[in-house]
Design a protein around this nucleic acid. Structure first.
Lengths: 212, 212
DNA sequence: ACCTGAACACCGTTCAAGT
DNA sequence: ACCTGAACACCGTTCAAGT
């Protein structure tokens, strides 16, 4: 993520070495700094030290640059989830770890998280750039892997058929994603650190809000 | 500049009758039409038939107009939830009905829903305009009411103390809100209508993903 | 192929002035 | 108190031209 140093050292030729990369890096920084992606494309170009429409050689529209930023975010999110599961075998604990990583990512990168799931990436015709579409599926796939394995090993009360697993994945993702969103949006005014809240939600989710 | 011939022979007076209301109405329509709130304040003014900076007499910034739009949305959401519960007494069914209303609102007004929970309403100093802050608490309060009553009546396995109920409310809200967001964002590619998905999630949530 | 500079049609916001 | 018009400093995007 920090490959900006070597670029600055070299005297800039007419053709930027890797402008595409530099633009994405600048945009990622701007999202983090301003907690927002309302910055102008011209500002991104300024940061990269190029003219205000050099970006158009690499991204047809501002939206496409944002999609590339989102893709970086999805990679980081997926990597974080996978790393959090390392060495854990028990189904529910793997799930809890992944949930913690998910919410941790969201609270650490609130604006990026919102951008990743926002509508800004959709084009006018409703389609999403491939980059973001594909990248977005990855976090879900990690959850799917956990649920599938849990179902097969009997850790969860989920049938092994595809539809049941898909529904269980959606339910699980909803709970985690909703919590992350509410925290990021400042709508969770309960006391307690994110970790505690994740624990609480996963507890309710795994045990159910049923009467015993 | 184009002082149009008054169609209905009603000469528009220098002072608009209720410009504030007209601006909010125009903005609500624009959010629905464009599925987006990137429209300009000038466009809103045009729709209301006033000069491009008449709005500043009623809203210090564009953001404040959007906050008023969000507040309208929160009222509608709350009303929908309350109406859906009408006549139902059994705890879990009340909860399911409210969840359906919540997701129904989101899928019927995707852009408005996103605006309501988005960061666009927060002012630069991080505070949210009172309008949206207060309105946003209402949907949550409806859920709190359901959970509280369910806890007292023993419908849910939730302790009656304040902290337990607060946590249960957050868990429930997370599951419903997350599902709504994922559907609205087009990230739920499971087959099935929203209603079926809500049912599935509530089922998992109430029964728990535990091994029986 | 990649980048620049001028140009176009917009914005949000401010300000002095009108009613 | 509420509204207007001109003005300012911006945008995103297009285009012809440079390397």
């Amino acid at each position: 993520m920090d490959r900006m140093k070597d670029v600055a050292a070299i005297p800039r030729p007419y053709h930027h070495g890797d402008l595409r990369r530099a633009l994405i890096d600048a945009a990622v920084s701007l999202v983090a700094e301003e907690q927002d992606w309302s910055f102008s494309l011209r500002e991104v170009a300024r940061r990269a030290g190029v003219s205000h429409n050099a970006p158009y050689n690499h991204f047809p529209e501002k939206r496409d640059l944002l999609a590339a930023v989102a893709a970086v975010g999805f990679e980081t999110l997926r990597d974080g989830m996978i790393a959090s599961m390392d060495g854990i075998t028990e189904g529910k604990i793997v799930l809890a770890a992944a949930a913690q990583a998910y919410v941790k990512f969201a609270t650490s990168n609130p604006a990026l998280f919102r951008l990743m799931f926002g509508p800004e990436l959709a084009s006018s015709d409703g389609t999403r750039p491939d980059l973001a579409e594909q990248a977005g599926a990855e976090a879900k796939n990690v959850l799917r892997g956990i649920i599938s394995r849990g179902a097969i090993e009997g850790a969860f009360a989920v049938e092994k058929d595809k539809a049941s697993i898909a529904m269980a994945v959606l339910s699980t993702w909803s709970a985690i994603h909703g919590l992350a969103m509410l925290i990021v949006d400042g709508r969770s005014d309960e006391a307690g650190s994110p970790n505690v809240l994740v624990e609480g939600v996963m507890q309710h989710f795994l045990d159910g809000l049923r009467k015993r």
